[in-house]
Simulated scan of single mutants.
Amino acid sequence: MEIGKVPHDVLKNIVFDKLKFFNPDVTIRPGIGEDCAVLNCGEQLVVLSCDPITGALNEVGRLAVHVSCNDIAASGVRPLGLLVSILLPAGSTESDLEKIMTEIAETATAIGVSVIGGHTEVTDAVTRIVINTTAIGLSKQKTICSAGAKPGDKLIVTKTVGLEGTAIIANENEAALKKQFGDGFVSDAKACLNQISVLEEGIIAGKLGPDIVHAMHDITEGGIFGAAWELAEASGTGVNIFLEKIPIAPVTKTLCDYYKINPCRLISSGSMMMATTNPELLIQKLSEKGIPAAVVGEMTSNPQERFIFKTGCKHDSEKSILKQPQPDELYKLP
């Protein structure tokens, strides 16, 4: 298999299809596009999600906090606790661990999440730092899932796509990019890391509730194209994506052009995808909190029809098929 996420058909046939038993109090279970589990604990719902950081060498502590907490936010719930597992390769130093833990502690504090436990070890089973985090949230109301999108829903994306990928590329290739584009450009690209939390947009959608925001999905590995396919697959719908409507920051476009990669298939933590019956209200609520958002597509009834249109018009003849997610563009970099 290729580096990156296991292909969805393999995931379904080899992983999900083997899971035969679920306690009835497990209200959201594993599935394509679903990043969270939800447990019914009587008066409260417990929302859980776990994610590893494997595609970055720098700022791994910050990224590790955000990736799992963003998944909780995609349920419309604020995360409250985080379990952290850190695997350090042989030869790691105490300074390496201190840097990681400083990043984790500062990031968790900034978003109001408590680190409540985990595991730390040095092992020759890994060749570079691997951090896995499990985030936990509580809710007294129905959560939003990835599988709730309905035909006719408008598809909204917050901020700009490729934020996480832009920051990772700039951090990993800082010296070469400074020679090519200058210090200011690299500083702007690295600063994209400051935007990769989607807690605010998730909480806004949660307050509107699943009657208005039918589904949400944190745009991560595979980019906006991967997230749109996963949302449609989870919901059993089709989808139309309008390429010219997708917000891409100039710094992201420049980097992607330079490395000849597609920003729409680049890891995009920091951008939330939302399927809604009332896009005007949702965009207004987001705007009130200073969060830009744009309508980039719509859900359709036929799950066999998932398209990318070049313009904002579904009658445009220039369209291509939105395929099952491929390995992220990040893995194409030398």
Rank of each mutant, 00 (worst) to 15 (best):
M101Y: 15
T123N: 01
A108P: 00
V122C: 03
R62Y: 15
V130I: 06
V113C: 00
L87M: 05
G81I: 03
A125I: 03
C69K: 06
G118H: 09
T123L: 02
L97G: 09
A110M: 06
I111D: 01
T127P: 00
V67E: 09
G91S: 01
T133P: 05
A105Y: 08
P79I: 02
A135Q: 13
A108L: 07
T123G: 00
T102Q: 15
R128G: 08
I104S: 14
S114N: 10
T127R: 12
L87A: 07
V130R: 14
A110V: 04
I131M: 02
I131R: 04
N132Q: 14
G61T: 07
A135L: 06
L88V: 03
V67Y: 14
L80P: 00
M101S: 10
T93Q: 05
G118Q: 02
A108F: 08
I104T: 13
I100D: 12
L63E: 15
I129R: 09
A125M: 08
K99L: 12
A90N: 04
I104K: 12
T107S: 13
A74H: 06
T133I: 01
I111L: 02
V113T: 02
T109R: 11
L82K: 07
N58S: 09
S139H: 07
S114D: 08
T120L: 11
P89H: 01
P89V: 03
E94N: 11
G112W: 11
E103M: 13
A64T: 11
S92H: 05
T102W: 13
S92E: 02
T102L: 15
G112L: 03
D96R: 11
P79T: 03
S68I: 03
G137C: 05
A135K: 07
N70S: 11
E121M: 01
V113P: 00
I86C: 01
E94C: 06
R78H: 12
S75H: 02
T107Y: 08
K99I: 14
A90L: 01
L87R: 08
A64P: 03
T134P: 02
T133C: 10
L88W: 13
G112T: 01
L97C: 12
A74D: 06
E59N: 15
G61W: 07
N58V: 15
G91P: 05
L80V: 14
A90Y: 04
R62I: 11
I72W: 03
A125Y: 15
T107F: 06
S114T: 09
V65A: 12
